[in-house]
């Protein structure tokens, strides 16, 4: 039963996630591209759930699909961008990019082909809040504290970079 549920979750969210990525790639309107990316982020949260990483799944929805994408949509609406024009004028560059991307996919699939023997059975001990919090407060205490410094630096840096120079 558990394996069946994992199978259904995996296929639904894998297809939705890749569809979201393709939507991001081909939508000319930046707002639609951002909405496709939100679909992709929700699907990745579902894939985390099917991997029994519940905490990361919730954090994915809160931080990525919630905070970061709202910021992106806010900036897109603020700048009032028009659609990209003349995307089709770079035929050779686009074709080259697609060839390189497909070559990358083939190469990586070839490299990791041996991992299909791993069935991902049994339970995952580190998916819940308690073991992750324990790890954060013991082994990863210094990086955890450094995150606060990084967030403060990003906050101040963003205000300094984006401020209007009229008043200072």
């Amino acid at each position: 039963m558990e394996a069946t549920l994992q199978t259904i979750l995996f296929w639904v969210f894998a297809i939705l996630g890749i569809a979201g990525g393709i939507g991001l790639l081909f939508n000319r309107n930046p707002v639609y591209a951002a909405l496709s990316l939100i679909l992709n982020f929700f699907s990745i949260a579902g894939l985390y759930l099917s991997l029994q990483a519940q905490f990361l799944s919730i954090i994915q929805v809160l931080v990525y699909a919630g905070a970061i994408m709202v910021l992106f949509l806010f900036v897109i609406m603020l700048l009032n961008l028009e659609h990209e024009s003349g995307v089709t004028t770079f035929h050779t560059r686009r074709a080259l990019a697609f060839v390189l991307g497909l070559a990358f996919v083939g190469e990586m699939l070839y490299v990791f082909r041996g991992l299909s023997a791993y069935k991902l059975e049994g339970s995952f001990e580190y998916g819940e809040v308690e073991p992750i919090g324990y790890q954060l407060m013991t082994y990863y205490l210094l990086p955890f504290e450094m995150i606060s410094v990084i967030l403060l630096a990003a906050l101040i840096g963003a205000i300094i970079v984006a401020r209007s120079h009229k008043y200072i």
Partner: peptide, 28 residues
């Protein structure tokens, strides 16, 4: 149809390639 480690990695690889192609082709 049951997913194994390779299935998840394949999804991840395809998403990464889509992102790479997007960085190389999009202009916005």
């Amino acid at each position: 149809l049951a997913p194994n480690a390779f299935s998840y990695l394949a999804v991840s690889i395809v998403m990464f390639a889509i992102g790479t192609i997007g960085v190389m082709t999009r202009r916005n």
